[in-house]
């Protein structure tokens, strides 16, 4: 079974704790990693990749010291290694321009405003994990508890 990682990036430890707590139900299928800065996140992503594992979902805050979340997303999307990685911007404070940037240049998959709802983030994780599995051609049968059936059906309909 391939290891699928969900990377949470936020400079506020309290937010990270709350977020990972909400993600705990998925921890049997997915690996959760916490990072406090963009640079740290990048290092973690590279090491995950070097181990041959997958950075499936990247959840990042926008406003952080040094580099912003959108910087990270752009960097990830322009790197062939993380082309299929799904991205979520989780923020309480993104300007209009940041958001436009995130969508246009970082091909953002999802925009979530703080405070988030547990159910909402669960649904997003399911949909994005499913999309990631399908785009990578990984056998989704091993990840049934994090699959979004609707997304699965929609995609499988188009294959032969």
């Amino acid at each position: 079974m391939d290891k699928l990682y969900v990377l949470c990036v936020d400079d506020q430890r309290e937010v990270l704790n709350a977020l990972t707590q909400d993600l705990e139900p998925f921890e049997t299928s997915l690996m959760i990693e916490e990072c406090e800065s963009v640079n740290e996140a990048w290092e973690v992503m590279e090491s995950i990749d070097a181990n041959g594992d997958h950075v499936a979902i990247l959840i990042t805050d926008q406003v952080m010291p040094a580099n912003t979340g959108v910087d990270l997303l752009k960097r990830a999307k322009s790197d062939p290694r993380f082309q299929d990685t799904r991205t979520v911007l989780l923020t309480g404070l993104a300007t209009h321009q940041d958001t436009i940037d995130a969508i246009n240049t970082a091909h953002l998959d999802n925009y979530v405003e703080k405070p988030w709802s547990k159910e909402g983030i669960h649904q997003i994780i399911k949909v994005l994990t499913t999309k990631y599995l399908l785009s990578k051609g990984i056998d989704y049968n091993e990840y049934t508890e994090v699959l979004d059936q609707q997304t699965l059906f929609e995609t499988l309909r188009k294959t032969t």
Partner: peptide, 10 residues
């Protein structure tokens, strides 16, 4: 860019 992958599949 990049470094050698060091896992079983690689």
């Amino acid at each position: 860019q990049g470094s050698w992958l060091k896992n079983r599949k690689a």
